[in-house]
Structures are given as C-alpha cells and as structure tokens.
C-alpha cells in the first residue's frame, strides 16, 4: 500500500484501528519502565537532590509541546500545498494535545523553579516564548471552533499555524540568544549530552513513553475528527432532504 493511500479516511480508520492497541501497549510498557527507572534506578542530582525527578516529566512534556506544533506545521503545509484530505484533520486533532503538553511543561517548570530558582515564574525569553506557544495553541483551537465549515477553518488555521511556527526556533535558541534564568540545552547538543548516563537513560525512556502517548492520543483524536466530519455531512444531507420535502409540499 502506498503512503498516499492513507489519504483515504476510510483506509486510515481501518489501519489506525489495527495500530492503536499495539501503540497503547508499547506506551504502557515504556511508562512502566520509565517510572521504574525514575524512582528506583536514577540517582538524585548532586546539586538539585530529588527535585531532578521533575525533569523526567518537564523535559519530555516540553519536547512534545514543540514536536506537536511541528506536526501541526507540516500538516498545515499538507493542507495548503497538497490539499491532503487528512492534513487539517491531523492539525486540528493535534492542537488540544499540544496545549496539554505545553500546560504540563509550564506547570512542572514553575514547580521546579520555586525550589531551584526561588521563584515560580520570571519573564525570561524561554518561559515567555513557551507561554506564547500555549496561547497560540488556544488561539488555534478557538479559530477552528469559530469557523463552521471545516475546509475553510482548516485553511485559515493552516496559515496561522505556519506564521506561528516562527516561535519554535525562538523557543529552542532563546537560552542561547538571550541571558535567561533557564539552563541551556543539555541533551540535544552538537558535542553530545552533558547529563550522566544514569540520569540520561531514564529521561530518554520517559521521552519515548510521552512520544508514544502523543501518537496514541493523536490517532484517537484524528479518528474522532473524521467521525465528526461524517456526522456533519449526514446532518447537512438530512437537513437538505427536509427542506426539499417542505418545498415540494408548499408547491403542491
């Protein structure tokens, strides 16, 4: 089967139904392994103590917040350039999930900041740009709900999503470009991670678990969105049939 065959929503529904149980099982196994490593294998940090355990939630959530928006940006290209039938379905389904991961990243970062920095919040470049990302997710969700026609809504949201994608490099490089309270990158670096393997491996396993969770929820939300569009089409058909009957009765 060619990858473009998946553009057919019916085929997508069939394939995703077969894929979801396996993805869900892999996600549960990854979370079980990640949480075990977090609480029973990974040592406390020599400076931060046990608060380093917040990192196993905060960092994967922050990565997923950005990855989710990247998925939406690629989907938006699919909507505007290739008019892929599932592209705006994918983008719309991803928005609430991205908002949730961004919210988790903001809250856990704030709760980590208080004992480590002495404050829940500072208006530095990294924290502010992630807050902007969260507001953009909410704005896109609102835009989709404002325009009734899903095709028109998809195009408008795709343009806004691509404009907002400029925030992704700002988030990533904010710690290098500006003097921020937030620490610079310590995993994805040109010269390799600066974290000790005993702490890095649990982090990577938790990141894998969060990524699998994203794919599970994204597939489920995409299936819902396809059903929502089918329901809308059927409701319009039923309404036009009722109008047709009423018009013919009036003519008689």
């Amino acid at each position: 089967m060619a990858i473009l065959d998946l553009a057919n929503p019916t085929r997508f529904l069939a394939l995703s139904a077969r894929l979801l149980p396996w993805l869900f099982a892999a996600c549960v196994v990854a979370f079980a392994a990640g949480l075990y490593m977090t609480f029973f294998v990974a040592p406390d940090d020599y400076q931060q103590g046990a608060t380093v355990k917040i990192m196993y939630l905060h960092v994967p959530a922050a990565w997923l917040a950005m990855m989710c928006y990247s998925v939406m940006a690629v989907s938006s290209l699919g909507t505007l350039i290739w008019k892929h039938p599932l592209a705006d379905v994918s983008a719309k389904a991803a928005a609430p999930i991205g908002a949730a991961f961004t919210l988790i990243s903001l809250i856990t970062g704030s709760l980590w900041g208080k004992p480590m920095w002495g404050t829940y919040w500072v208006w530095d470049a990294r924290l502010t740009s992630v807050l902007v990302l969260f507001i953009m997710y909410l704005g896109l969700i609102a835009l989709w709900r404002t325009i009734e026609d899903p095709i028109r809504a998809g195009k408008a949201a795709a343009v806004l999503t691509l404009v907002g994608a400029i925030n992704l490099p700002i988030i990533k490089f904010s710690v290098d470009w500006w003097n921020t309270l937030h620490q610079p990158a310590s995993v994805i670096r040109m010269d390799g991670p600066t974290i000790h393997p005993t702490i890095l491996w649990p982090l990577l396993v938790m990141a894998l678990a969060f990524t699998l969770l994203f794919f599970v929820m994204h597939l489920m939300a995409m299936r819902n969105e396809i059903l929502r569009r089918r329901l809308r089409t059927m409701q319009l058909q039923a309404a036009s049939a009722r109008v047709g009957v009423a018009t013919s009765q009036a003519a008689e």
């Binding site: 046990a50 608060t51 355990k53 917040i54 709760l111 980590w112 208080k114 004992p115």
Partner: peptide, 11 residues
C-alpha cells in the same frame, strides 16, 4: 524525596 517532596509529588 527530600525537603521538596511536595513540589515533586505535585508535578
């Protein structure tokens, strides 16, 4: 979880 257990559990 040390002196900041509340923050960790809350997260």
């Amino acid at each position: 979880l040390g002196p900041h257990a509340g923050f960790i559990v809350a997260c």
